[in-house]
Design a protein around this nucleic acid. Sequence first.
DNA 1: ATTATATTTGACACGAACTGACAAATCAAA
DNA 2: TTTGATTTGTCAGTTCGTGTCAAATATAAT
Lengths: 94, 94
Amino acid sequence: MNSLGEKIREIRETQHLLLRQVAAYLEIDTALISKIERGERRLTREQVVKVAKYYKVSDEELLTLWLCDKVLDTVSNDPYALKGLKRAVNTIKN
Amino acid sequence: MNSLGEKIREIRETQHLLLRQVAAYLEIDTALISKIERGERRLTREQVVKVAKYYKVSDEELLTLWLCDKVLDTVSNDPYALKGLKRAVNTIKN
DNA sequence: ATTATATTTGACACGAACTGACAAATCAAA
DNA sequence: TTTGATTTGTCAGTTCGTGTCAAATATAAT
């Protein structure tokens, strides 16, 4: 339910960076990136791309997690979530 | 991108019901249900359930389409949509 | 053609949700 | 115990979603 937040925290810690530094790079408040890492807030798509650049990881990896989180936000707790998702997958495939 | 709207229009027409009637049942403006059928607006979850009852079709059928539309709204046009969706499917399965 | 009914369109209102800032509180080292 | 890092709570501004209403357009029937 918060795969991206956990992921970027993990990356930040292994690179020994401070929230303050990431926040400065993203031009947002430190408090905000803190909330984001703990899943209380979400990054915008543009911010995800920026973070990927800053951490030198692929856009694709982080954007996939970001999309996954967004999708789960919209369907989770619905008994037909899986059915709806699968239909969406098929729709996109075609 | 608008599977539910098309579906409920189809059902309504085969049952020879008017937008006015459906709108009255849902207690919303006729203009709104018109927009919904054409994909310009979305039903709420509660309204989907009500429509299913009114048209005597299963909740599951319409809710699945409704979820599918919502999911596609949130991921469509993103190049990693499919990857994100698939990850979400796996997450839900576990 | 005229009227009556059905549907669509566009503008706007209201509230909820999202993004962000800021200040204060807490945590962790030194 | 003081300093720096992180977290928490609240509030402001903006955007998005749900709805109404009035006017425009289409469709029927007479």
